[in-house]
Design a protein around this nucleic acid. Structure first.
Length: 561
RNA sequence: UGGGGCGUGGCCAAGCUGGUAAGGCAAUGGACUUUGAAUCCAUGUAUCGCACGUUCGAGUCGUGCCGCCCCAGCCA
């Protein structure tokens, strides 16, 4: 289903693929792969890569693989592999036995091919130490020089390489190198290492191997074996492409096309594996799934839907220019979706007690309130109302600011879906802090409208004190205070920009009783506040909600100016 | 000072074989509103990095320059 017929391709990669389709370069096939190393958790940057790799394959009716590039036993673990599979499935892509592959399954084939190159005089065993090798490599501006071991005979190379595999030599004593050009202006071509000796237990192959292939040598072979047509990767691999091509050509095997695009950067966030690891290890967040983390697990716990993340990835586009996407776009994507899907509920984050003095002591009324103002099909719910209710502290101002149209002494506002109330008294404690409000209600305004048709400008949310559920609401903000977390004074790193208020816990929040029984992952719009989701920390005794994203707040914005 | 890339409004980003600048986000104004939300209208700003050149005409071609990013792991 080539749905792009007749329309211009959306990006340069699709353009290249359409060109290949037109010329029949790969026999009309489109086959991509997402090749993570199982040594960490996936984040939003990976989501972009996945959406590109898999989204493009889907667009052209092609196939896509998940391939674990597990060529370094020193840093890989099964746990990571499983989490990666889970995260990709969560995003909505189809990965399973039929399209999950492991580079480690190709080790034998790779070894055979290495022997082929040795026989062709295109690879040799080098005994230089790592330090010597660095010296021989030259610099960016000076050419390197040939290793004294470069011209060993094919027989000797074959013998040595075989013994490397057999585990006869210690780590760092020898490597297998491609014989290309030590004077190449592209440093990657200065006789790159193909295999290094590692006496490590591999999480899948165990102790079978003592040598492991390097990325440059392995990657093209993996793509070739799987029949990948377009090997999409980030800009960092641009100057590795000549090497990718060189190995495949030297072997004369099926040759996919590597194409590079810019990786994702987002304002107020850091995406490097190393930095993310520090946030976790140094305890700045609770773990990889902390709702402030840009990991897919973090976003999930935060309440982001996979659809919103895919939508985000679609909107940011694909190009080769390094760029930083405004996090506001991600927030827009989740708001747009949750506005559609999330049932509304009332929650008072910072309660202020309101006593409705003319409301009967023991009376309780139930109001039928819509779950979605624009979607009657989402139904209604019964919300109890009684003499004492909580409203948001910020919805009352003793001395109202200009244009403030919430509650204030002598002012009338609407309690959403219930009654109009007028503030008649402000009760303070010895310290002068407001402890409660006395209001009167207009029985005629039942349901939130009045027969005389008078208008109230303000509508605020509320919750019946006697019926409210105690809850903890976790309010999140960006982890960093600067758009560019890396923008720090000399000698400091991004930790200097950590936002001390990235998590603020509203421990005394009250929510309407209808939320009892909510399950982790459930999403709601807490009216006038934002979108929230139930956290896994929720127990029978205490509900816990996470702020996914606040509602846009033009009042707050106006106040700031 | 080697090589590889990139440079279009505040942020992303289209712009095919040159014909006179899409779209989204953000921002702003207004309408509507029992969420100051949503929705709906409206709005702006682009020396298309700079300079020459080719051309009737260049973001699109050429030359030169400037700026930014990446590469010297037996990591991926």
């Amino acid at each position: 289903m080539t749905e792009n017929e007749g329309t211009a391709p959306r990006d340069f990669i699709r353009a290249a693929i359409e060109e290949d389709l037109k010329t029949g370069r790969f026999g009309g096939r489109v086959h991509t792969r997402f090749p993570p190393e199982p040594n960490g958790y996936l984040h939003i940057g990976h989501a972009k890569a996945i959406c590109i790799d898999y989204g493009i394959a889907e667009d052209y009716g092609g196939k896509y693989n998940l391939r674990f590039d597990d060529t370094n036993p020193a840093k890989e673990e099964v746990e990571y592999a499983q989490s990666i599979i889970d995260d990709i499935r969560w995003l909505g892509f189809d990965v399973g036995e039929h399209n999950i592959f492991y580079a480690s399954d190709y080790f034998e084939q790779m070894y055979q091919w290495a022997e082929v190159l040795i026989k062709k005089g295109l690879a040799y065993v080098d005994d230089l130490s790592p330090d010597e090798m660095r010296e021989y490599r030259g610099t960016l501006t000076e050419p390197g020089k040939n290793s004294p071991y470069r011209d060993r005979s094919v027989e000797e190379n074959l013998d040595l390489f075989g013994r490397m595999r057999a585990g006869e030599f210690p780590e760092e004593s020898r490597v297998l190198r491609a014989k290309i050009d030590m004077a190449s202006p592209n440093i990657n071509l200065r006789d790159p290492v193909m295999y290094r000796i590692l006496h490590r237990e591999h999480y899948r192959t165990g102790d079978k191997w003592h040598i492991y292939p390097m990325y440059d040598w392995a990657h093209g072979l993996e793509d070739s074996i799987e029949g990948v047509t377009h090997s999409l990767c980030d800009l960092g691999y641009e100057d590795h492409r000549p090497l990718y091509d060189w190995f495949l050509d030297a072997l004369g095997i099926y040759h996919p096309q590597q194409l590079e695009f810019a990786r994702l950067n987002v304002t107020y966030t850091v995406l490097s594996k190393r930095f993310l690891l520090r946030l976790v290890n140094e305890g700045h967040v609770r773990g990889w799934d902390d709702p402030r983390m840009p990991t897919l697990r973090g976003l999930k716990r935060r309440g982001y839907t996979p659809e919103s993340i895919v939508d985000f990835c679609d909107r940011i586009g694909i190009a080769k220019a390094n760029s930083v996407v405004d996090i506001a776009l991600l927030e827009h994507c989740i708001r747009e979706e949750l506005n559609e899907r999330a049932p509304r509920a009332m929650a008072v984050l910072e309660p202020l007690k309101v006593i409705i003095t003319n409301y009967p002591e023991d009376q309780v009324e139930y109001f039928d309130i819509p779950n979605h103002p624009q979607k009657p099909e989402m139904g209604t719910r019964q919300v109890p109302f009684s003499r004492v209710v909580y409203i948001e502290q910020e919805d009352f101002m003793e001395k109202p600011a200009p244009k403030y149209f919430r509650l204030a002494p002598g002012r009338e506002v609407r309690l959403a879906g219930a009654y109009y109330i007028t503030c008649v008294d402000v009760v303070k404690d010895a310290a002068g802090d407001i402890v409660e409000l006395h209001c009167t209600y207009d029985p005629e305004s039942r349901g939130g409208a009045t027969p005389d048709g008078r208008k109230v400008k303000g509508t605020i949310h509320w919750v019946s004190a006697a019926h409210a559920l105690d809850t903890e609401v976790r309010m999140y903000d960006y982890l960093f205070t600067k758009e560019d977390p890396g923008d720090v004074p000399e000698g400091q790193d991004f930790m200097a920009n950590l936002n001390p208020e990235s998590l603020v816990i509203m421990a005394g929040a009250k929510v309407e009783p209808g939320l009892a029984g909510t399950k982790p992952g459930d999403r709601y719009q807490f009216m006038r506040k934002g979108y929230f989701c139930t956290d896994p920390d929720t127990t029978e005794e205490k509900l816990v909600f996470n702020l996914t994203v606040s509602l846009r707040d033009s009042w707050a914005k106006a106040q700031q100016q």
